[in-house]
Simulated assay, not measured.
Amino acid sequence: MDLNTVTSIARPRSRGQLPRWNSGDAWLAGGTWLFSEPQAHLTRLIDLADLRWPALTVTDSELLIAATCTVAELDALPCPPDWIAAPLINSCCRAFLASFKIWKTATVGGNLCLSLPAGPMISLTAALEGICTIWQPDGQRASVSVADFITGDQRNVLAEGDLLRGIAIPLAALRRRSAFRQISLTPVGRSAALLIGAVKDDGLLLTVTAATVRPIQLRFTAMPDASGLRDAILKAIPESLYHDDLHGKPAWRQQMTLRLAEEIRAELSVVRP
């Protein structure tokens, strides 16, 4: 869609060249949502392409995902054998309600910043205990977990002029046994519930997304039994946090959350040699 109110495009090549943020500005990365509907309030786009951030960087302790990394680049990442949670990457990429053409343009950072409950990059990076780095307009930077970055349906912690730089995933999270469950009302529909569980320190880290307006994480120091897990979910997630739209009503999303969580618990309770 043409954005006919935009009168200028800035193309910074470094952080120092980022222009002063004004009302009517928008960051441009993949643009798959930005160009999908009218944006009559916009007058300038700040194109991030010339910053040329490396899409993916592996250090001794972290996988660094640039905000401008595309879904296709993340899906194609070659993962070492000890990253036993790596299948989560491919599963979450395929949870997009999008074609392969969108994969090549849509960015991980854009999915987080749009902050839709069903954003699968939110599900992935929250479950892997990702930490967001935010560039602030005064030259400072802030760090916040992905689970805390999202505050509600299409809401997050970004203030005016803040720029999501990237997400750091601890390699320890990629080396955990994990389980993935997702359900939609239709075979290729938007996720109505997407849950990821991981064995952490002999306990369970359960991340609930899509069913809720923001990511909810439950941490257990030991693997819970079925009733303990159910009670914890009912206590941690009130009805007001379940998302309500045409892709699923809150009562149904709650039941799917309870069902999928128990499937994850049962799978991860099996001790493998």
Rank of each mutant, 00 (worst) to 15 (best):
R190Q: 10
I167D: 03
D153M: 09
L18K: 02
T57M: 08
S99E: 09
V213A: 12
R253Q: 15
A193W: 06
A95I: 09
R20H: 08
R155N: 04
R214I: 07
C92Q: 06
D201M: 07
A85Q: 13
V199Q: 07
F180E: 12
L42K: 00
R13E: 09
L77N: 06
I122Y: 02
R175A: 09
V144S: 13
A172M: 12
G130E: 06
K249A: 15
P80H: 11
D202V: 09
L97Q: 12
T57F: 05
C92K: 01
R219V: 14
S8V: 01
G152Y: 11
R141P: 00
F220P: 01
C93L: 02
D202L: 10
L234E: 15
S184N: 13
L112W: 08
I102K: 03
G189T: 07
L124E: 01
V199L: 11
V270L: 09
L3E: 04
G203V: 09
L206V: 09
S91T: 06
L268R: 04
I134N: 01
P137D: 10
L48T: 13
W135A: 05
S23R: 07
I183V: 06
G130K: 04
P170M: 08
L204V: 01
V157C: 10
A76C: 12
G109T: 04
V144M: 12
L128F: 02
A251W: 15
R11G: 02
Q154L: 07
G228V: 06
L63W: 13
L18W: 05
P137E: 12
L258W: 15
V271G: 05
A66R: 08
T212R: 03
Q136V: 09
L48N: 06
L128W: 03
P250Y: 13
L164M: 08
L185C: 09
A236M: 13
L56V: 08
C113E: 06
L42W: 00
C132L: 02
A192K: 07
S269K: 02
W83V: 03
